[in-house]
Design a binder for these strands. Structure first.
Lengths: 334, 334
DNA sequence: CTGAAAGCGCTAACAA
DNA sequence: TTGTTAGCGCTTTCAG
């Protein structure tokens, strides 16, 4: 039934060379005559031979699959963030001709780390144990999307403080004074930092944000809807709102439409993410773009260097977000 | 530098048993005394030993990583569909303790199939060659989300014809007569089938759909917006619209709001997908749910059976979609 | 119930 | 440039 897999020996036999030569051709080592290369390639083609990767790894000791470990909390897979990471890592792996072993982590199941040449941890939340375990095995690890202080590991993060700052300054540039914000989950580093950067910039500008203008959301559309209904029904409505995710920003705009409030004439809205959603809808959403895809791509490159020993110092990198101007912000009319 | 990995021998030495016994404990084979199990486990813990998967695979001949190959066309990663597949496969792999090797296919790069015990192809579009190649190597393959006729391979698909039928019948149940549809990409099997099922049901019910009531979209929000603007500005407006994706349905609703057309009073809208987006927005979207996650999960189970020879007959399964009633449909007022 | 020994398919010295 | 040979770390008969 299971028709025996063709192996390197079969190829060697057919090509009338040694298995070493076949191995050399497969690995594109120099020092093989053209004639032999041709013979081997012909045999490979005829037999449809594919090297057994497990054997290659075992024999060579090398291990070129990059692991991507993502937290599995509900909702993450609907987030733009998660998708961009998968895309970025996947794409870079394609380029580096490495396999990507994808692991949705429950924080408990141990990783088959022997399998992976290196591991990228996206967002350390509950999988700190896995990270430390892998580290203790001397497997190259890289954390993305999180600034990690308490563990000696390289990371690439997004400068969310700067992101909050960018949003704040942009709103201020129009002369807004009554500025509200709908936060993401403040327990996450990203959520806190965006908020922090935003508030600091306001402070520096001498703009005071009253408590009622700070609505603690959780990135969900539901929370944004509640926030919008609350803010829009205030006696003294804000003239600008910084929503800490595009999803929330879009929901706020939707509520505004429903309530007959015009964007950006009556209220300016700025989001965060530059999700593709931001381009559609009734009005283009001005937002702060996070280079998630680029971060993920870069991570693979760095990991690559770590794996082949080109890099051994700890990397701490925070990538800067960028303002994307569309139509949802303007000077206040009131 | 690279501190030597601990291997099964080290564990055996420390536990004072043979490596065979260690292997047995690792693989949870019976026939090991409790005492020895304990000794081995202690040694494993102390040494932080992890079996080398490449060696395990090589020695056992087995190969338990499931490959997931997805087309890489632009936009796919923003689709609800793709995410659900990744989640479903990822989750099931976790359960079966298999690794998931994720491959974003460009249709050209050959797969490292020797790596995988079996492969799940999501949506055969441009990667037919890879599928056939893998098949010719006798690697268990399973196609999901596509009915495949011309290749002898098992598949699990969604019954989109039925889905179209469900949408049609639901709209008809309210007594709608002027019914329009905004199609997805009709070149895709899913798009065509939904349209087909819908039209047939209309036909059977004796309802004629004029040409202008069929707007050929492409799943994009942009196309939906155009469709909505077109349909809503007709002299004889449809009283109900079947949008062949939730994304498009949401956009149509947004346009309706902008134009002051009420949903569902003036126009009923039914979507397709049951994307999480459908739950938010100004009004709950009635839609047809596709069991994508379940399909992906099931695929892993089936593949598992194929891999260990429990199943060898070709499987052709189409899973039924299901109506999800929310608030966007009602009896026509005009 | 346990252990010795023979590979799994491949790479990497080392010789020739 | 090529081939011989010894493992890589583990599983799996097969004896004991």
């Amino acid at each position: 039934m299971e028709n025996k897999r063709v192996n390197i020996k079969d190829v060697a036999r057919l090509a009338k060379v040694s298995i070493t030569t076949v191995s050399r051709v497969i690995n594109k080592l120099p020092s093989v005559t053209k004639r032999n290369i041709a013979r081997v390639e012909a045999a490979v083609a005829e037999l449809k031979y594919r090297p057994n990767i497990s054997a290659q790894r075992l024999a060579s000791g090398s291990n070129n699959a990059v692991g991507l470990v993502m937290p599995g909390y509900p909702g993450i897979f609907h987030s733009f963030f998660a998708i961009e990471i998968i895309r970025g890592v996947g794409h870079a792996c394609e380029v580096f001709k490495q396999d990507m072993v994808f692991h949705i982590s429950d924080g408990v199941t141990p990783l088959n780390s022997s399998y992976m040449g290196g591991i990228i941890f996206a967002d350390i939340i509950e999988n700190r144990a896995q990270l430390e375990d892998s580290l203790s095995r001397h497997i190259p690890c890289l954390v993305i999307n999180n600034v990690v202080q308490d563990v000696d590991v390289s990371y690439i993060a997004i400068n969310n403080i700067k992101g909050g700052d960018i949003a704040a300054k942009y709103l201020l540039s129009f002369g807004h004074k009554r500025i509200a914000t709908v936060t993401g989950n403040l327990k996450t580093q990203a959520g806190f930092d965006r908020f922090d950067g935003f508030m600091k910039a306001m402070d520096e500008a001498g703009i005071e944000i009253p408590k009622e203008y700070v609505y603690r959301g959780d990135y969900s559309r539901r929370s944004a809807r509640q926030a919008a209904e609350f803010l829009f029904s205030m006696k003294e409505r804000p003239t600008a709102i910084f929503a800490q995710s595009d999803d929330m920003a879009m929901e706020i705009i939707a509520v505004a439409f429903e309530m007959g409030i015009r964007v950006p004439e009556d209220v300016s809205i700025i989001g965060f993410d530059d999700s593709p959603l931001a381009m559609y809808g009734p009005i283009g959403l001005t937002t702060v773009r996070q280079p998630i895809f680029e971060m993920a791509e870069k991570a693979v490159g760095i990991l690559h260097e770590m794996i082949n020993g080109t890099r051994d110092t700890r990397l701490r990198l925070a990538m800067d977000p960028e303002l994307i101007v569309r139509e949802s912000c303007a000077v206040p009319s009131s």
